[in-house]
Computed example of a mutant assay.
Amino acid sequence: MRNKNYFSEKILLPAYLACCFFLFCGISFPSAVWLSLNDYIEKYKGIAIMEMQRTGIPASITLAQGIVESNYGNSMLAKYSNNHFGIKCRSTWKGASVRLHDDKPNECFRKYNHPYESFIDHSYLLTSSERYATLFNYKSTDYRSWAQGLQKAHYASSKRYARVITSIVEFYGLHYYDTSTYQKYSIHPVYVDMVEKYAQKYGMSPDAAAAITDVQTIPVESEADTSNFNNLTQLIANTVKTEYTVQPGETMYGIARKFGTTVEAIQSLNALPTTQLKAGQIIVVLQ
């Protein structure tokens, strides 16, 4: 009986109290899985493409910003609060929140029930503010102008922001997702429901945001967390490129899986207009 009480008091009770603490603070338990950058692209390219088709924001820009802001899904904010873009609460926010130390102590960040909500809110941030209005003069395939425009609009304080975003887009072939013919993605059915309920949950329809003309100007304050810049640039610099000879019957998809990369990265590295390969063809792949 003594052993049973010891187990209850020393093991179960602390675990229960810890759970209560996280729930009381509005923090959910994070996934223990560390995402690779390629995993992040595969997991969220679908929502990025859907948001591009809905709002005109290039999928490549959304993915690159998510990679930078969330350390490709591995930041505490992304894991605990599904916030992939480091968006802070501000006075208009009606949803859940979490407190973290950032530029200032104990800052308020938005918390979402699902990562897709973070992507939808990111679209609303760009479409509802006059600060980013000029971005929508660019085509969704012009990712370079979008990256420069975000920097000019002070999305980030770093003068390297546009260069880093563009480097990520081009190195991993994210611009292939900006073409309207790209259909090779999957997305969870909850996305449609989340878009429809956005207004009810957060007090504003993301579809109506683009039509708003009387928008209160947001003070020029950087949205972006650029603390991952050095890590990402180092990751790109340390990524090994190797030549590979295509074997009979091999596909670009199969080769991408073999090397743990993406089809789009192979296309971008080799400037290939299609995914068609021939036996004996020599290509460059990431390792």
Rank of each mutant, 00 (worst) to 15 (best):
104 K>R: 11
119 F>E: 09
119 F>I: 02
81 S>V: 00
85 F>K: 01
137 N>T: 15
114 H>Q: 07
102 D>A: 11
147 A>E: 04
151 Q>W: 08
85 F>A: 05
154 H>I: 01
139 K>A: 15
140 S>E: 02
100 L>H: 13
135 L>S: 06
88 K>F: 06
83 N>A: 02
126 L>S: 07
79 K>N: 06
149 G>F: 03
124 Y>K: 11
106 N>K: 14
108 C>V: 04
91 S>G: 13
110 R>S: 02
138 Y>F: 12
147 A>D: 04
140 S>A: 10
116 Y>G: 08
149 G>C: 01
118 S>A: 07
114 H>C: 04
109 F>M: 07
101 H>T: 12
102 D>S: 11
115 P>C: 10
90 R>L: 12
102 D>E: 07
94 K>G: 05
90 R>S: 14
132 Y>F: 10
96 A>H: 05
140 S>I: 00
149 G>I: 03
127 T>M: 05
85 F>W: 01
148 Q>Y: 15
153 A>R: 11
98 V>Y: 14
143 Y>T: 06
143 Y>E: 05
154 H>E: 11
132 Y>L: 01
94 K>E: 06
129 S>Y: 14
144 R>K: 12
136 F>M: 14
89 C>F: 03
141 T>H: 04
155 Y>G: 05
126 L>N: 05
129 S>W: 11
135 L>N: 04
131 R>D: 01
147 A>V: 02
79 K>R: 13
136 F>W: 10
108 C>T: 00
120 I>Q: 08
142 D>P: 00
150 L>N: 03
147 A>C: 14
138 Y>T: 07
149 G>K: 14
151 Q>H: 06
93 W>H: 03
102 D>Q: 08
111 K>W: 02
132 Y>H: 02
91 S>T: 09
139 K>V: 06
123 S>W: 10
91 S>N: 13
131 R>I: 09
139 K>D: 13
119 F>P: 05
127 T>I: 04
122 H>L: 04
134 T>K: 14
149 G>S: 09
143 Y>I: 04
134 T>F: 14
125 L>I: 02
145 S>I: 05
152 K>Q: 11
148 Q>F: 12
131 R>P: 02
90 R>Q: 10
